[in-house]
Design a protein around this nucleic acid. Structure first.
Lengths: 252, 252
DNA sequence: AATCGGCCTTGATGCATGTCAACTTGAGTT
DNA sequence: AACTCAAGTTGACATGCATCAAGGCCGATT
């Protein structure tokens, strides 16, 4: 809850057209004029801090949110404090897509570290995308991409073992960070081991043991939240292995 | 591959406006005129049979498909014949949404029984939905609904035990069939035990044992593909139970 | 610098469920 | 009616990972 550093407002008062994320975000493929129109409906608030919520399960759906800097986790809280982590969201990624249908949020979104967030009022966005075909197309693609990503997670949770899951997690982080211009082999995780385990359907202890094992095998160097990937190809192999020869589960 | 019965063509040459599924399908909330416009781009082919593919992984994406009668499974094939079943699709449900982003199909869709399918060429659909705001809205909701459904599956695969998974599967089938005017307590499953297990992340044997157990406990009566649900409330309880007192996994 | 508490790690143990194997059943074929 | 084959069932056994428990480490607070 303690704020580490004062973030300059200049860093978040940027328009979409100047945003380095525009290739990953909604402006994807829009003309400069259309980007301006989109920009005009986007709200930018002051930075949020670790633990703050963008929205909570059950709340009325009004806006989509885009991570500009920092990171966010989405999760479905259950009675008795249990939860299922649905995802970790990095800059450029859009949050709240699952709420369009029900008009209310089924999951909660919590900020993992000091983060800047863009808010996109959905009704206005819908009007706008009616009049900008390429924005409608970008939105269809975005929703579709989310569905595709979920399908990958289903495969991960349905068929992969603990080792494959953590490897897949590391590869995913590596790729996504890389797309954002950061190092694919040296990064800090903003989420706890507990949250990683929850996300991957594993116990904290299993995650911890796997990190240790990967380190012992020379695949990574881990110091708390700091991860250095030493042998990405091997980790990709572990992650991708839908079934390495002679392994178990649902072969046939 | 053997065709059981000759299906009259009249049963599939129906327009969207006369379709009993219009409340569940794309025409959801459209004016009669707009339904006609949508109808004009929809193609209806002759019935497909068990084992036929709507599309295969890797193929170029051209159309969305809607189940009109029958049922379809989607799955991601992997090398060596393994697969992850992503879903079973009943009348009114739309298939192919995950392919919009990549412009190619990442999964395959196979017909489980003789089925009638509507094909919706996507490019034309996109043009149409630009000019019909309520169609755009319906499509956003549909994509969003799919994302919400996937999130439920993530919770199921990430946190629920075998018993809860099969119960959730039965409840889901019951609810969806009920919405289509069929009995919520008496139905035939078009998929094999193997496919159910694959979908739920369980071994065939586990599924089989659970059906037997549920039957012994008087919750259902099962005869091969025929399922009668005798005690729906209890099954719903098992399915919903995010964590029944004294059970294991990620409590805390 | 001492204390505290959360997070992480490591070890020991148990169980749910996967795996292997044998048998049963029913539908289709001859 | 005998045969065949795929699908399902049931039992015996193996194991990956959760669970339980204890201890270590670091950052925050005083």
């Amino acid at each position: 809850m303690t704020q580490r550093k004062v973030i300059s407002f200049d860093t978040i008062r940027v328009a979409c057209k100047n945003c380095t994320l525009s290739q990953l975000c909604l402006p994807m493929g829009l003309s400069p004029e259309d980007v301006d129109r989109l920009d005009s409906i986007v709200k930018r608030s002051r930075p949020l801090h670790r633990g703050d919520h963008l929205f909570r399960s059950g709340e009325r759906f009004r806006s989509l949110y885009v991570v500009k800097t920092g990171s966010v986790k989405t999760y479905t809280p259950s009675e008795e404090g249990g939860e299922q982590v649905l995802g970790f969201h990095l800059p450029g990624e859009i949050i709240g897509l699952d709420a369009i249908d029900q008009d209310s949020h089924a999951c909660s979104a919590k900020v993992l570290e000091t983060s800047a967030i863009c808010e996109v009022p959905f009704q206005r966005f819908e009007e706008l995308s009616s009049s900008i075909p390429s924005l409608q197309h970008a939105m269809f693609r975005l929703l579709s991409k989310e569905i595709g990503h979920d399908a990958e997670m289903l495969l991960l949770l349905g068929k992969k073992n603990a080792e494959e899951r953590l490897a897949a997690f590391l590869v995913s982080m590596s790729q996504r960070l890389s797309k954002r211009g950061l190092s694919p082999t040296d990064f800090y995780l903003s989420m706890s081991r507990h949250e990683i385990g929850n996300y991957l359907g594993l116990a904290v202890e299993t995650v911890s043991r796997l990190f240790t094992r990967f380190q012992d095998e020379g695949l990574v160097k881990v110091d708390r939240k700091h991860v250095e990937i030493l042998d990405l190809p091997t980790i990709e192999g572990l992650a991708g292995a839908t079934q390495t020869a002679g392994s178990r589960r649902h072969s046939h």
